[in-house]
Simulated assay, not measured.
Amino acid sequence: MSEIKSRSIKENSEVLMHFSIRLADGSAVDSTKVDNKPAKFVMGDGSLTPGFEECLVGLSEGQSETFTLAPESAFGLPNPDNIHHLELSKFSSDVPAEVGTIISFTQPDGSEIPGIIREVIADSVTVDFNHPLSGQTLTFEVDVLEVLN
């Protein structure tokens, strides 16, 4: 009898996996296990950072792995060009400018981008459009459930 060989992740593989993300202090940021809804994606489709994908290549079905990524390999470093100052009058009672709030802003092309309110001083609101996890060293825990193709 031939042995059934589990498939390994390679370029263009379709992958079903659970993952958890932790900050350097160990606090959990995100986990697919909370709602028991594993993530499904195709390697190279842009849904994961290249540094994260590099860590997944070669992992097999049923394998669990933990790896830590520096900001450059995770969600990047904060870009000062992604911090904007808006007039307080652009906000309303429905969408107040409160520090720490994440608000979805509509771009000129109609797409939406999240921004974090960092500071409110007089009539000026500082909005950070960098990824909320940019600049963070992150630990990823992955459980590879299935590898297709």
Rank of each mutant, 00 (worst) to 15 (best):
E3F: 13
I4H: 02
I4L: 12
K5S: 12
S6M: 08
R7K: 15
R7V: 08
R7S: 15
I9E: 03
I9A: 06
E11D: 13
S13Q: 03
E14R: 13
M17F: 03
M17N: 00
H18C: 04
H18Y: 05
F19T: 01
R22C: 06
R22Q: 09
L23F: 05
A24L: 06
D25T: 00
G26R: 00
A28K: 14
D30P: 00
S31T: 15
K33M: 09
K33S: 07
K33V: 10
V34M: 10
V34L: 15
V34K: 14
N36E: 13
N36F: 08
K37P: 00
P38D: 03
F41R: 02
F41I: 01
V42I: 09
G44Q: 07
D45S: 08
D45V: 08
G46Y: 01
S47Q: 09
S47P: 03
S47R: 11
S47D: 10
S47F: 12
L48H: 08
T49D: 02
T49N: 02
P50W: 06
F52C: 13
E54I: 04
E54Q: 14
L56D: 09
L56V: 11
G58W: 01
G58H: 06
S60L: 00
S60M: 02
S64W: 03
S64C: 14
S64N: 14
T66Y: 01
T66W: 01
F67A: 07
F67M: 06
F67E: 04
T68V: 14
T68K: 10
L69S: 07
A70W: 03
F75G: 05
G76Y: 04
G76D: 00
L77V: 03
N79G: 02
N79Y: 09
N79C: 08
N79W: 07
P80G: 03
P80N: 10
D81M: 10
D81E: 15
N82V: 00
I83L: 10
H84P: 00
H85C: 08
L86C: 08
E87T: 11
S89D: 13
F91C: 14
S92I: 09
S93V: 12
S93M: 11
S93Q: 13
D94E: 09
E98N: 05
T101Y: 15
S104L: 14
S104K: 13
P108Y: 13
G110Q: 11
S111T: 15
S111G: 08
E112H: 13
I113M: 15
I113L: 14
P114S: 04
P114N: 02
P114D: 03
G115H: 10
G115T: 12
I116R: 15
R118C: 08
R118A: 08
E119V: 05
E119F: 10
A122N: 15
D123R: 12
D123C: 03
S124Y: 04
V125Q: 13
T126I: 06
T126H: 01
T126M: 07
T126Y: 02
F129K: 09
N130T: 04
H131A: 13
P132D: 00
L133Q: 12
S134L: 04
S134F: 11
G135I: 10
G135T: 14
G135V: 11
Q136L: 05
Q136H: 14
L138T: 06
L138A: 03
L138D: 04
L138H: 05
T139P: 05
F140I: 08
F140R: 04
F140N: 07
E141C: 09
E141H: 13
V142H: 07
D143N: 10
D143K: 12
V144G: 00
V144H: 00
L145R: 02
L148C: 01
N149A: 14
